[in-house]
């Protein structure tokens, strides 16, 4: 393809990314570095501050809750809307926090789906293949998208309104304390590549368009789409990061780490399902994780 077409594709995907993902890396880094004016996150570092943070979210009628309620009619997040707001929380800090994470993850799956649909050619693929690409790609995308929210000391949650410390997450009981540690390790390394939101948009599309997902019916058109996005990413990185040598190769290498993290993450969820009596998995996440790996 012509360079101009590849540039247009990069712009298109960046615009879609800005449209569907409410907390960009630019915003997140501004919050984390204290350069976002009045937008100072509430810090959760122990049980007391966790309770206060929950109150803050529940009383504040955040956009998150509004979105949950807005999507309730579609049966995607309604189950957890009822779990989180106004009714008795499930026992235990860990499970309650886990449910909030599930709620946000289900919403994020919806955002990623809309982004995937904006990739030129995606909606023309066999519908079953679209499902397969999302099923296998979406957790990789979600984990990758945690990186901009993280630094070595903790992570932004709840659309950047809260910063939860890594030490607090590590203090939760097993296996909850093990769930985010690998993501912190990955993020700290990934963040050294200093990708911006426009780079991320292209990289997410590359991940979604992986032609080697199990059960794909028609691999060829997926590989063709991915090849074009790869060319666009390569060119974009050269222009956007002229001094960063081999950045394209370094970015692509991260795909291996992401796959491993998804395998480990799903194993932890399966373990939770066996060990936690009260454990309730969101139907959308259940659908994605069933027979995944």
């Amino acid at each position: 393809p012509e360079a101009a077409d590849l540039r247009a594709l990069a712009r298109h995907l960046y615009e879609a990314y800005l449209k569907y993902f409410p907390l960009t890396k630019a915003k997140a880094r501004a919050i984390l570095s204290g350069k976002s004016g009045d937008n100072v996150p509430f810090v959760i570092h122990d049980i007391k501050s966790l309770m206060e943070g929950e109150q803050l979210i529940n009383n504040g009628q955040t956009s998150f809750q509004e979105q949950q309620i807005a999507t309730a009619g579609h049966g995607v997040t309604h189950t957890f809307t009822h779990c989180n707001i106004g009714s008795e929380p499930p026992d235990g800090v860990e499970l309650r926090f886990f449910y909030s994470c599930q709620s946000r993850s289900a919403e994020a799956v919806r955002e990623v789906t809309e982004f995937a649909k904006s990739i030129p050619g995606f909606v023309n693929l066999d519908l079953n293949d679209q499902v397969t690409l999302l099923k296998y790609g979406v957790i990789e995308v979600l984990i990758l998208m945690m990186s901009p929210l993280m630094n070595k000391d903790g992570t932004l949650i709840s659309y950047g309104q809260i910063f939860m410390t890594r030490e607090f997450l590590k203090s939760l009981r097993k296996p909850f304390c093990q769930m985010l540690e690998p993501k912190f390790d990955f993020s700290v390394k990934f963040n050294t590549l200093e990708l911006d939101d426009s780079d991320m948009a292209l990289f997410l599309a590359v991940i979604i368009l992986s032609g080697d997902r199990p059960g794909l019916l028609n691999v060829k058109p997926i590989e063709q789409l991915q090849e074009t996005v790869l060319h666009s990413l390569e060119l974009h990185l050269k222009i956007n990061h002229p001094d960063s040598l081999q950045l394209f190769a370094k970015v692509l290498q991260k795909m291996t780490d992401l796959r491993q993290m998804v395998t480990d993450h799903v194993q932890l969820i399966q373990l939770l399902k066996k060990t936690e009596v009260d454990m309730f998995l969101h139907p959308l996440l259940q659908e994605i994780m069933k027979d995944l790996y």
């Binding site: 807005a70 049966g75 995607v76 799956v109 789906t113 099923k135 659908e287 994605i288 069933k290």
Partner: peptide, 20 residues
């Protein structure tokens, strides 16, 4: 198709709160 009915629905309908 039954196994992934929510994903199917998300792919076929726009459920963006903006468009609701």
């Amino acid at each position: 198709k039954e196994k992934h009915k929510i994903l199917h629905r998300l792919l076929q309908n726009s459920t963006s709160p903006v468009e609701l």
